[in-house]
Design a binder for these strands. Structure first.
Length: 617
RNA sequence: GGGCCUCUAGCUCAGUCGGUAGAGCAGCGGACUUUUAAUCCGUAGGUCGUGGGUUCGAGCCCCACGGGGCCCA
């Protein structure tokens, strides 16, 4: 659907362009993923020598079990991580975390790891001092047998759980409850015989660890001071207490570096520079709460969309991303090559033509959320790869699909933020609630320029208007619809702030949309504008295969005139349509743009790992 | 495509009139058993995006290129 518009920036893909999410569904259920996913397969194989031919139990709440199992297997080669893993014999026997506190939780049972040899390529003088120092600390931890990258640590509690469970303690009150916690060190304060460290988990929850000379002993405390840095993953086991200053803390009886960081953390009190945030999102996620929040909000939003669609009986499908012929939108595709068949393939610019094939086949309420690729510019609202939701509803039309779209967006706002009045990044509020405005393209344009413009208005006159208002149009694409669209964007598009459906577009702009049921020259299409940009588009789908063929032929003529975004005739798609697709409403919505609409962030903030131009060194 | 801004220590940034480069954080050494961006003493750290040019002398002026941002088309 949303394809044909050939206008400028927003029009290009406007509606259908969102962002990205790494596709790794197979990673979440390793036991089931052995057949179709090569990644999972290789993982299974790699593991099988330690634990037999089947997968171990689901991730054990008692990491020691895993340790025991892992260390029983013969290490095939030098594997420092296994050798470094220390474990408690007692815990291994019982499979539980000891309640009484052993002096040393970990004892090295195998010391096969040779002290890491200095790597001449990296341990030389031209690495920054801080990296050299941290590498030396890593080497020392390994040489001492403490380990810098143990296989596992006996973590028993999440940080948030400890904080909640012991929040009631009085200042300075101590318990005898022993917990094991882990997180990244984000603060260290050393007052001599007592050290404080704050560890942070992936959600940004922080917990204070206290290490005293009396509790851990001189050697352990000295090692902590010497070898633990900001940025390291730290495990600590000890009693849950509340400090004299009222902070829930773990009073460590033992600790371990869970993973040594070789690079220093950036200053946590200042945001990273914009460019660094995007290029090193992993650092951004550690350092900036909004980055963490956005990644989680995106996940909530995706789940909300899927839940809303599933609850309405829609079925999610996946359609080809590698296509022999790009279609479903007016956009330039990426081209790639398939060696086996020695043919060029196109990365899809839209899923539309395949979703309609699915509708022909009887998947009548169907949707897909996935990536599209458009070989066009990249700026603050366009990414070359973006995620889009497309949905088709048999026996619906552009009105019912508009209602669905409003419900989806409002539901997402509700699920992510608990309200339909969202607070944007700049602090302003934006109201997505209520019934959204409906205007028509010709009506709103006529009103804006003060004279009646209709589908009958001549191209010559529209060209005059464009000249008068200094609206430039690519000469290769001049036609009634294109001129209307450009004039409309110039006069009306920029003025829309509240959520607004703009309905009834010129036929030339929408080759996959059916003619209006009562108005000649326009098609049943809307664009949804939110905060001034195009968020979604919806159609009463064109299902007459004869008219569809004519529209394609018209597009082919536009292509012959030099319009490189014109659609190409897709014979197999027409064949499918000749089996008859039920009357349907369809919509496409940019997922990245939806998150932008909900948060006020730029597209590079809503995409976890946006494409960035490589630096030149 | 056009205009403007920007690139300096691991990070965030200052750097005046062209005169051999600074701060905070983090790092290193030391002190400190309740800190919260701890504090105190000491200390190390630089291809100033890259390449040219002007100049006795360039982080600074000029040109080109590269990365990023903003605004326009």
């Amino acid at each position: 659907m949303r394809a044909s518009r050939g206008s400028q920036a927003p029009a290009r893909c406007g509606s259908r362009r969102p962002a990205a999410s790494p596709s790794r569904t197979c990673a979440t259920s390793p036991r089931r993923a052995s057949t179709s996913c090569p990644w999972a397969r290789s993982r299974t194989r790699a593991r099988s020598w330690t634990s037999g031919s089947t997968w171990p139990d689901p991730p054990s709440p008692h990491p020691f079990r895993t340790v025991g199992r892992a260390t029983r297997g013969a290490e095939p080669a030098h594997r420092p991580s296994a050798a470094e893993c220390r474990r408690s014999d007692r815990a291994q026997l019982t499979g539980t975390v000891p309640r009484s506190t052993p002096r040393r939780i970990f004892t090295v049972t195998e010391q096969t790891a040779a002290p890491a040899p200095a790597d001449p390529a990296t341990a030389t003088d031209d690495v920054p001092e801080q990296m050299r120092v941290r590498r030396e600390k890593r080497d020392r931890l390994i040489a001492d047998g403490r380990g810098a990258y143990p296989v596992t640590v006996p973590k028993t509690h999440e940080i948030a759980d400890v904080k909640a469970q012991y929040a009631h303690l009085e200042d300075g009150e101590e318990t005898q409850d022993v917990v094991g916690v882990a997180g990244r060190v984000v603060f260290i304060r050393n007052t001599g015989k007592l050290c404080f460290a704050s560890i942070q988990d992936g959600a940004g929850e922080r917990l204070q660890i206290m290490l005293s000379l009396a509790e851990v002993g001189e050697e352990s405390l000295a090692s902590f001071k010497a070898d633990v840095d900001l940025g390291d993953h730290l495990f600590a086991q000890g009693r849950a207490i509340k400090s004299r200053r009222g902070e829930v803390s773990v009073f460590a009886s033992d600790w371990a570096v869970a993973a040594k960081a070789l690079r220093p953390l950036p200053t946590l009190h200042k945001d990273l520079a914009e460019d660094t945030r995007v290029r090193q999102r992993y650092v951004d996620l550690i350092a900036r709460p909004l980055a963490r929040e956005t990644a989680r909000n995106r996940a909530t939003m995706m789940r909300s969309l899927r839940d809303s669609l599933h609850s309405r009986g829609f079925i999610e499908v996946e359609t080809p991303m590698l296509q022999t012929q790009p279609g479903g939108a007016a956009a330039r595709p990426f081209i790639t090559h398939m060696n086996a068949y020695d043919i060029d393939l196109y990365m899809r610019i839209a899923p539309e033509l395949f979703l309609k094939r699915a509708a022909v086949g009887g998947i009548e309420k169907v949707f897909e959320i996935n990536r599209n690729f458009r070989n066009e510019g990249a700026d603050s609202s366009h990414s070359p790869e973006f995620s889009m939701l497309e949905a088709y509803e048999a026996y619906g039309d552009y009105t019912t699909i508009g209602r669905l779209t409003q419900d989806l967006v409002q539901g997402a706002a509700q699920d992510v933020f608990g309200t339909q009045v969202v607070t944007l990044a700049d602090g302003t509020e934006y109201d997505l609630g209520g019934e959204w405005a409906n205007i028509t393209m010709y009506g709103s344009l006529s009103e804006a320029i003060g004279e009646e413009i209709t589908p009958e208005t001549s191209v010559a006159y529209l060209q005059q208007l464009c000249d008068r208002f200094e609206v430039s149009v690519d000469p290769k694409r001049v036609n009634h619809g294109k001129l209307i669209e450009e004039l409309w964007e110039h006069h009306v598009g920029d003025t829309l702030t509240a959520p607004t459906f703009v309905r009834d577009f010129p036929v030339e702009t929408s080759p996959l949309t059916r003619d209006h049921r009562s108005i000649d020259g326009v098609v049943e299409k809307w664009d949804l504008y939110v905060r001034g940009f195009e968020l979604a588009t919806g159609y009463s789908e064109l299902v007459d295969p004869v008219i569809q063929r004519e529209r394609f032929e018209q597009q082919a003529r536009m292509a012959a005139q030099g319009d490189d975004e014109a659609m190409r005739l897709d014979e197999d798609f027409l064949t499918a349509m000749e089996y008859a697709m039920p009357p349907s409403g369809g919509m496409g919505m940019g997922i990245d743009r939806l998150l932008m609409a909900l948060t006020g962030l730029g597209i590079r903030e809503t995409i976890l790992f946006p494409l960035v131009k490589p630096t030149d060194d």
